[in-house]
């Protein structure tokens, strides 16, 4: 009922519609067959078949054609990384577009674990990331609640300041953050990074959470308070459970940001023992070695879990970010 699909040209020329549709179907089949013929005549280069099939789809079902095209653009670079991670060491630089390279091998993965301290990097990143996400959410959830439910002096300037923090150029913060962390004597410790990341994650988290709390009617807490709950009890019992989508979005955002960060980490972490994967992988293709195989293998391993988490949460993403912003 809320579909804009009614926009299709059908409404105007319903008579020729059937014939038109059939014509497009024939065209699609012709394109597919044409692609296949070119593939066979060009020594089985499947590129022609793929292009033919896609053009056919575009003609037959244009919307699917567009979505397939965009999905391919989104996915292809990822598939490429997977493909590079499977290449044998003597074929890393190759002009081949095959997704499964000739002589595919898991050697890069094995070497990543045996020759590098990959597990340690991932472990460090994981502890930092989980700590940041948890502490960040604890701090922002209560802060956002204050912004959402009370009118207190300094509220507006503070909210604007939160937005302002997003405008600080990252390189502006690097030296001061290092100075703080060095003075706290935390440069060879994950704590410094946890504190820095948490603080940078808080403003945006508060923003999102506040927007979400705003859509929850205050009557709900008041009802709970009438039942004898304290204000904070009402917050924990009523607001937090209702905000699950927003909380999980904030968790996801902070997780992703901390998991992938490297500029601050590069400045702060001064010890191999606390190296995160982003620094480790960066080093694999730095000035000294250019180990594309191991790098690609590592990229696949650190990306896949987050990717799955993200795809699994993609439904929540939509509701958590925008629910309630549009008032019908």
């Amino acid at each position: 009922m809320n579909s804009t699909a009614a926009a299709k040209p059908a409404s105007r020329s319903s008579l020729s519609d059937e014939g038109y549709k059939q014509l497009r179907q024939y065209g699609a089949v012709a394109l597919l067959v044409g692609g296949l013929i070119l593939t066979v005549t060009n020594g089985m280069s499947w590129g022609y078949a793929i292009i033919g099939a896609w053009l056919g789809l575009l003609l037959w079902k244009p919307l699917h054609g567009i979505l397939v095209f965009y999905s391919a653009i989104s996915v292809y670079p990822v598939l490429r990384v997977i493909s590079i991670s499977l290449r044998p060491t003597d074929g890393l630089l190759s002009r081949s577009l095959d997704l499964i390279p000739p002589g595919a091998t898991f050697n890069s993965f094995v070497e990543l674990f045996t020759e590098e301290e990959f597990l340690r990097w991932v472990w460090n990143s994981l502890t930092i990331t989980v700590a940041v996400s948890l502490i960040g959410i604890a701090i922002s959830a209560t802060g956002a609640y204050a912004f959402s439910r009370w009118r207190f002096p300094g509220r507006r300037p503070m909210l604007i300041f939160l937005l302002t923090t997003q405008m600080l150029p990252a390189s502006m913060l690097l030296i001061p953050i290092f100075v703080i962390v060095a003075q706290l004597n935390l440069t060879n410790n994950v704590l410094g990074l946890v504190l820095a990341y948490t603080s940078t994650a808080v403003p945006f988290s508060i923003w999102i959470l506040k927007g979400y709390y705003d859509t929850i009617p205050p009557d709900l807490e008041e009802a709970a308070m009438v039942d004898g709950c304290q204000r904070m009890e009402a917050f924990y019992k009523v607001i937090l459970p209702l905000s699950t989508p927003a909380l999980s979005i904030v968790f996801l955002f902070n997780f992703l940001a901390a998991w992938a960060e490297f500029l601050v980490a590069k400045v702060i972490l001064q010890s191999n023992a606390v190296m995160t994967w982003s620094l480790g992988l960066n080093e694999l293709i730095g000035t000294f070695n250019t180990d594309w195989g191991k790098y690609a293998a590592g990229s696949v391993l650190v990306t896949l879990p987050v990717l799955l988490l993200f795809m699994w949460q993609s439904k929540y993403l939509i509701s958590g970010l925008t629910l309630g912003s549009v008032k019908g």
Partner: peptide, 9 residues
Amino acid sequence: LTAGLAGSG
């Protein structure tokens, strides 16, 4: 240089 500025590290 950054560590020198911080005075530690």
